[in-house]
Computed example of a mutant assay.
Amino acid sequence: MIEQRTDYDSPWKEIIERFFPRLLEFFFHSAYTAIDWMRPYEFLDTELQQLDPEAEVGRRLADKVVKVWLKSGEEAWVLVHLEVQGQYDRDFAQRIYIYNYRLYDRHKKRVISLAILADEETNWRPSRYSYELGGCRVSLEFPVAKLLDYANQWETLEQTTNPFGIIVMAHLKAKATYRDPENRLQWKLNLVRNLFERGYNREDILDLFRFIDWIMVLPEELANNFKAEIRRQEEANRMRYVTSIERLAIQEGIVQNAKENVIEILEIRFSEVPTEIVESINKIDDASALKTLLRTAITIASIPEFQQILNEVTAPRNSETN
């Protein structure tokens, strides 16, 4: 059996943000064709917390709210809900309904609610929420994409150039090879090779490699075999960007360790670390910034003082992304 990563939402969150138009094109074509992609769309990362501040919405990293423009010229909102933990949730449809009407109530804009089910429950397919009382009936129906269904459409996944073809393949094979690391190694190699055969640009390849590498985790020995095979392919001139991919993997390991070290030092020194500080640290990908925060965590006198330094460190980064 292969050790599972606990932070399974993060790679999906990144991939949704990176390829959002292609996601709608692949899973929800009606929504895709209604949107004017010549106009910029905007991710609203804090919107879900504002819609339901008392729930654990902040931990649902893969749920996304996106402001878009329709071809009619109307401003609209897209709610993308992604279930990745593989667990039945009897309140899932109700949650979509609640977010839908609260978002409409806040902004008075029409809302498109969409659901991607990445779980392993074949018969769990929530697509509507309704209730009726005293002659009054309320109902919401929403499109659903069930990733398990694509297991029977493998040829289509192999042939499409949409990045979500290979994303879905990686997800399905990660699930299918949970207890079979040798088979997972072979599929991981096949999928990485496939990246270079689809004509993606360098940035797309690196982002897709990051997703595959994250969800198809291997035991240490097989992970080393994977790296060795990648190097062999590079020497045979069959693959481009492999050196960049390996550097990326090394850099991400350094950054992830740095994040964990900062949080651990804070926990040791102050026992409890506010959730918003942990989330802010986990969003930082700059190794030098994390090095600064590590030194600060060791010497700072209090959590509020650390928060002030954290705000200063992240302020330039936030302004660059807006």
Rank of each mutant, 00 (worst) to 15 (best):
L114Y: 08
V278G: 08
D105M: 10
R22M: 12
N237G: 11
D285I: 14
V65A: 02
F164L: 08
I2W: 00
H81V: 14
N311S: 09
P126H: 06
K64F: 00
R295F: 13
E203K: 11
H29E: 14
L82Q: 03
W77D: 00
E229W: 07
E47T: 09
A118D: 07
G73A: 09
V255T: 10
A145Y: 05
Y104V: 05
R18H: 06
R210H: 09
Y241H: 12
D9G: 05
R95W: 01
I2A: 09
R110I: 06
K283T: 03
H81W: 02
L48P: 01
S302M: 07
G253V: 10
R295T: 10
S127H: 11
R198M: 08
D52K: 00
N100A: 12
N282P: 03
K13W: 02
R232W: 06
Q233P: 00
D213N: 15
A174V: 05
T156V: 15
N224K: 15
E234M: 14
T6Q: 01
L23C: 07
D45P: 03
V262Y: 03
I205Q: 03
R240S: 09
V313D: 01
R125E: 11
R18D: 00
V262G: 05
V255I: 15
K173N: 11
R22G: 05
A115C: 11
I35Y: 06
S130A: 13
N282S: 09
Y8S: 12
M239C: 08
E272S: 12
N162Y: 07
I300L: 10
R238I: 04
Q159K: 15
T46M: 13
T243P: 01
T33A: 15
A115D: 01
R198Y: 04
G135F: 10
E120W: 13
G58N: 02
I96N: 01
T122H: 07
Y101K: 08
Y97V: 03
P316D: 07
R231H: 00
E252F: 14
D63N: 12
F27I: 04
L140V: 11
Q153E: 02
L290Q: 03
T299M: 11
K64Y: 00
A174T: 05
E234F: 12
K283Q: 11
N237W: 07
E3N: 07
E42M: 15
Y97K: 00
G135V: 12
I300E: 02
W12Q: 01
S319V: 15
V217S: 14
